[in-house]
Amino acid sequence: MGYLDGFLVTFKKWAGTRTDTGRRVTTQYPEEVRPKPERFHGRHVLNRYEDGMEKCIGCELCAGVCPARCIYVRGRDNDPADPTSPGERYGFVYEINYLRCIHCDLCVEACPTEAITETKLFEFAFTNRADAIYTKDELLVGDDGRPQQLPWENWDGGFDPAADTSGWMRATAPAGSAEFEGIVAWAGELGYGVRSPELGQHAPDPSDHDDGHGHDDHDAHGGHH
């Protein structure tokens, strides 16, 4: 029937609402949460090593690469008696303005120490401009390596290392282990847990994995001192 075929199509969609023809693609969002894509970009965290040291060395590469100019970093020399990070310097101011952030993940790519990574959390609607600027205290993970929940954030799903860490991959050693050099691997980006391999990847032998005490992390991928 030529161009009248369209009427049949829409009619079938309507009549077949309960069948496969007219299957609805919409989900009822707040009640029904769709699984997030592997590489979803959400709010950032500043990671720490297992010994509690901050991974950020205040190098400002993230701020430099940020296309939205939403990151503000100031580095400062570590106190030799009580260092904040294992390196020479540490990030003493670290702020991300979420009114500007476009979640491009370039900061994560730029970071030499995996200090900044993204979670899959996107439900963090704030109601004033001050809340929009996440300070270092707010971004830093807790002693258990998990992000802090801020009052305006909706964490109904909780945080699950496999599900909520962003799928960002490095082509270098995730924790400074020489065995990982040149291998695409998956980091426990949030400072805890290890992501399960994605399609087409294989899990490395866990015995190869250096837990990464981290003191050599800023030292390229040079293995142990």
């Binding site: 969609k13 609402t17 609805r24 919409t26």
Partner: peptide
């Protein structure tokens, strides 16, 4: 509602 049904959506609910 009807347009939603015809476009595989749910519509106001």
């Amino acid at each position: 509602k009807l347009v939603a049904d015809m476009q595989n959506r749910i519509g106001p609910n």
